[in-house]
Structure formats: C-alpha cells, structure tokens
Write a protein that binds this DNA or RNA. Structure first.
Lengths: 343, 343
DNA sequence: TCTTAGCACTCGAACTCATAGAGTGCTAAC
DNA sequence: GTTAGCACTCTATGAGTTCGAGTGCTAAGA
C-alpha cells in the first residue's frame, strides 16, 4: 500500500518524466512545489516505490523513471483530467465548419488534426462498411468486354469494381439482371450481399435468362468486395519526432506494423467501449512494446461505430491525450449522428 | 579529357562504392580484375580524377568516393546495361497473371513490387484522370436532404461525392436534370466537365425546370472534382533501410516531402520522355539533395500517360534500376495498351 | 519512530591521450 | 610512364581521467 506522500511523489515523478524525458532525482523532486520533505526523505520514499515496482533506475546511481506498473497506476489513479484548451477546440471544430458531408472525409480530417495537435500518430477507424445497406446497384458497360459494377450504400459510400464480361452476352440480359438485383438486394447489408445474391436472384434468373449460370458467376465475382479497411492515419511521421525513438530499427518495425493494415485488430481493441489505455507490453504486438495506445470509441446514433486511437511513446502525455480523445469522441459522435439522423 | 585507364578506374571506383558504401582506396582497386596497374599508378590516376572533379575524399587520407560530377559521368558514359534477371521478371509479371483489370490496381501493385525488388522507394504516377471521358452520370438520393453524385469514366474510374440538396426540391426535377446531363455531358473529359456543364445545360434547364438556378448551383458544386492525384507509392519505409540515411532529421524531411502530394511535380520531371536520371542537387527539392531519382514514362496507346520513379540514395545501383525501369515501362505500356485497346 | 544532514560510493558522459591501420602524396629508381 | 618505398595524415578504437548528478547508508535530531 502507498502512503499519501508516496502517491504524491509517484505522480510528480511521472509528470516530470513525461515532460522532460530525463530520469528524475530526489533533489529535483524536493524543489517541486507541493513537496515539503527533504531530498533524503524523498530518497527513502523513492527506494520504497522502486521496491514495490512502480519506479525503475536506468543504472545504479541514476534518477528514477516510471516502470510499466508505475504508468499503469498513474493512469488508473493519479490522472486528473484537465479541460481541453480553447484553441484545440477551435481547431477540432474546423472540420465541421466547412460543411464536409462525407463521413470518410470528416474522419480523415479529424485524424490529421489530432496528430497535429498531439504530435503523435493518430489512427481513426471508420464505420464498418460491411454494415452499410445497399441503396443502389448498377452496371455501366465500358467497352465490349468490360464493365464496371457500382454499389451505393446508405451512407453515401460508393464501391466500384471493373470486371470483364463474356463478349457474346446479350446486353439486355445484363439489364434484366441489374433490374432483378435492384429489386431484390436493396436494403441488404454489404456483409450479406454475397450470400443474398445467391439466395434471392438465382431462382429468378433461371426463369428469365437463358445463360444464367455464366451471367451469375460474372456478377458474383464483380460483387465480391475488396473489404477496404477504412482506417485513416494522421501524422505517421510524428514517430520520428519523438526523442524516445532513436533506434532506426525500432522505428522501422513500428512503421511497418502501422503501414500494414492487417495489424489493426492487434493495435486497437476493437469493440471495446469507452476509453482504453494500453501501456508498453500491454500491447499485443512486440513492435509496440515501447508505445502506449489510447483508444476511445465513438458512435453514430445508438450504434458503436468506430475507434480513435493515439499512438505515442510510453512517456506520452496521458493527461492531455485522454481529455482530448474524450472530447473528440463526443464531438464526432454528436456531429455524425446529426449528419445521419435523417436516414 | 580522360584516358582509357582513368575511365576504367572511375567506373570501377563508382561500382565498388555503390556496392560497399565505403570510400575506395588504391590498394583495393589494384586487386580488382581488369586493373593491371600498381597501386602507386592508381594513386596518380585517382589524384588526376579528383583534380578534374570526378572523385572526392571524405578527409585528407581517405579513399575516394564519387562526386556528383562523377556519378553524372558514370550514368552518362559508363553504364553498361545488364539484362533484367529472370526471377525479377517473374515477379513483375505476376501483376498481370491475376487478371486484375483496374488500371489503378495494376499501377499500385507494380509500385509495391518495384520497391520490393529494389529496396528503394518507388513512385508511380497514373494516367491523369482529368483526361478521362465521362461515360455516365448519376445521382442517388440517400436521405431527404442528401444525395450522392457518381461519375463513371471510360477507364472504369468512378468518382463520387456526397452533397446536400435543398429538401424542398422536386425529385422529378432532379431526375430531369440527370437526364439532361447524361444527354449532354457524356463524352466530355473530366477536365472540361465543369465548364461544359454551364455551357450545355444551363439553357436547357431554364426551359424545363422552374427553380433551375438553385438546382444548377447544387449540381455544380457536387461535380467539382477533388482532383485525386493518383500517385502510388511503394516502400516508403525503404528509406530507413539505407545506410546512407542515418540522420533522422534528414529522413523526416525526405519522408515529409514524399508524403505531401503537392511536391510531386518537383520530384518527378512530368512530361519528360523516356528515361531521366537526377542526381543529388540536380533535384529541385533541397530535402532530396542526397537522393537520386530515376524516372521513365510509360504510355497507353500513343498517348504518354504516366511516370515511374525510383528514389534512392545517390549511391544507388544505377545499372540495375535503369534496366529494371526500362523493362517495367515497356511492360506496363504494353499491358495497359492491350487492356484498353478495345475502347 | 520519522526526518534529515552528511558522506562515501557508483556510474555515465565528456574529455584526453596513445596506438593501429588504412590511405595518401612524393621521390627516386627502373 | 611506371612502380617501390617511405614519411605523413587522419580516423577509429580503447584506455584512463575527471566531473557531476544521484544514490544508499549512518547517525543525529525532533
């Protein structure tokens, strides 16, 4: 168990280290306002905190730095939220000032502003497009053997795919097919589209169209969605600004992981509600063991839709980021809900 | 003027430095096959080459490294092309094996493979979408106040934009408008679309639709294209692999420049025919003064369409990259032309 | 029993110094 | 014109110092 004074010293130590990136010594702490004990007393307390695993030394006679456990205790118990500064709010609100109406665009811009504001890397996860509802399907022929399939969803997202069509296919058959699809598949989610295509249209096709098998396969292929991840990054290069990352090999690994979309589920706790903080090795990926990730979810209407994450060094400014993300999450939820309330 | 032996020594020096990244000394050169002179003679020749500005020393008693002028002479006169290795060809061809039919996808994948093959960063510039021809326009209403405008071009590219519509607008008016647009604007290039929209449809609108002004402005805004740059990168992180780039500050500047699309015209000599090599400070951007950029153009049919560039350190493997780009350019031109020959 | 002044000790960072080794330029002989 | 030989230069490396920040411990004081 920790005494009041130990808590205070732990908090001040973490705060100072976050700010300075330098190990914190007993003399330094003694000078801080709010701390009245002498440096000798502080040394005893520091030794105790180290014994309990909250602090570490970089070498035998160095000052202390927070351990992972120390950070964890800090964010769990010692974090006092501070209000988001006005100028940050102004900048964040600018996204909505410009009457941007596309969800994707709003999210993308928010990612940019967040990274600018924090000097860390931001990752924003948009709504899962597989939940979107088909609003319209159409096929536009391009050249004799080619056509493009277009799927419009209720959110205004447009998926498109070029595909080749058997050249001897009757154009009117294609038109029939599109009509059948529009009749049967509107209102279906993208996730179910493929399955429903088979269930709903195959029987109808057989009745109306002669070479239905070939046609069906062609369309089936065309509507296979490349599940675009709708992940947006801001300030990927901010990693290079952090003094904590000097090893170019580590930077490479980290950027590699972030560049490749497939690691997203390991980086972000998808589906988690509210605010999550993962410190150092609490992250699933080895490349991120020197990073902390702070995540919040946001939603449109009642549905939890996406996540906002900030990736920074373990020594990141938790207080500021937590407040900021809290604000952004609420703001984004509100604005996106407003934008889609009519649907 | 340089003697035969000087040319040989220059070539071998550059080759060796490209391979080893270490200054090259006279003893090392004397051991190379093809060089018969003693190290003392070579020292004299090296001094002469340095006097003429082709070589440099890093300090008074170091070996020589090529100067910018040395590299320039090397690529202009000493480069002997070598055939592209079979395994590289196999990998490059894999793009076309998979029956990918979208130009963008082909270019994107080529960028990836090129960077993998070279360990440098590749930049591929696709066809200018503003030259694409409108194949179809449509408007899909989403919710009472919102709709999405879709433009399909002859290349299969789909542009889309969500916009808000005055809620009290008559839906049949919108339909009329779309019909008029499709009648008048198909065949127009995206570049001309905005201008032609005004010329062609405004008069017609006035005749057929009551509140034409409002409707027109709405559509005008919806069809304002966000000129997507269609620039594709491969292996942006490969910069971090190069031993030549150890200064994290320089890396940052370089990545910054590449990340921001607006510098593309300065990085690539757009419009230049054939193969171009820019060495060090020949590049327009200060951030790239330690880089070399090798560019080739490629084309679809008779029209010059895009560029392929490899960005690496000045000490890059010019011979290999030149052969490779030469091959890729031809291949891409051939395949894309084949893909679009029917149009 | 808790706090604190005092002090010996530790360790890293920065600096100096010496040495080895790779490479040069120059001279003189071939 | 070429080359062996040699003095010279400069870097990289490692050992030895010093300096200072910081610690842990002890013993005295509250």
């Amino acid at each position: 168990m920790l005494t009041e004074r130990q808590l205070l010293i732990l908090k001040v130590t973490v705060d100072d280290y976050i700010q300075s990136a330098q190990p914190v010594g007993s003399n330094q702490l003694a000078k801080k306002p709010g701390i009245t004990a002498s440096s000798a007393t502080i040394r005893n307390e520091l030794a105790e905190l180290e014994g309990q695993g909250y602090l570490e030394k970089t070498h035998t006679s160095s000052g202390r730095i927070p351990s992972q456990k120390g950070y964890r205790y800090y964010v769990d118990h010692l974090l006092t939220p501070n209000p988001v500064p006005k100028q940050d709010i102004v900048q964040l609100r600018s996204v909505f000032e410009e009457k941007v109406t596309e969800t994707e665009e709003i999210i993308k811009r928010s990612a940019g502003i967040l990274s600018e504001l924090t000097n860390y890397t931001s990752i924003l996860l948009g709504p899962d497009i597989r939940k979107h509802i088909v609003k319209k399907l159409s096929i536009v022929p391009l050249s004799p053997g080619m056509a493009v399939a277009i799927i419009v969803t209720d959110s205004g997202h447009v998926e498109n795919r070029v595909f080749s069509i058997p050249p001897d296919l009757d154009p009117s058959d294609i038109e029939k097919m599109v009509n059948i699809m529009n009749e049967r598949l509107i209102g279906v989610s993208l996730h179910d589209l493929h399955k429903r295509l088979e269930q709903e249209t195959l029987a109808l096709l057989r009745q109306h169209i002669e070479r239905y098998g070939e046609l069906f396969r062609t369309f089936q292929q065309a509507l296979l969605l490349p599940h675009s991840d709708n992940v947006y990054y801001g300030g990927k290069l901010n990693i290079l600004k952090q003094p904590d990352f000097h090893d170019i090999q580590k930077i490479r690994e980290l950027m590699d992981v972030m560049e490749e979309g497939k690691h997203i589920p390991e980086i972000l706790p998808i589906g988690a509600q509210g605010l999550q903080i993962r410190i150092g090795s609490e992250n699933a990926l080895a490349a991120m063991e020197d990073c902390s990730v702070i995540t919040v979810s946001y939603d449109i209407g009642d549905e939890q839709v996406g996540s906002i994450a900030i990736v920074g060094p373990k020594r990141m400014d938790y207080r500021r980021i937590v407040s900021l993300l809290d604000y952004v999450s609420g703001d984004l939820s509100k604005e996106l809900t407003r934008l889609f309330q009519g649907k």
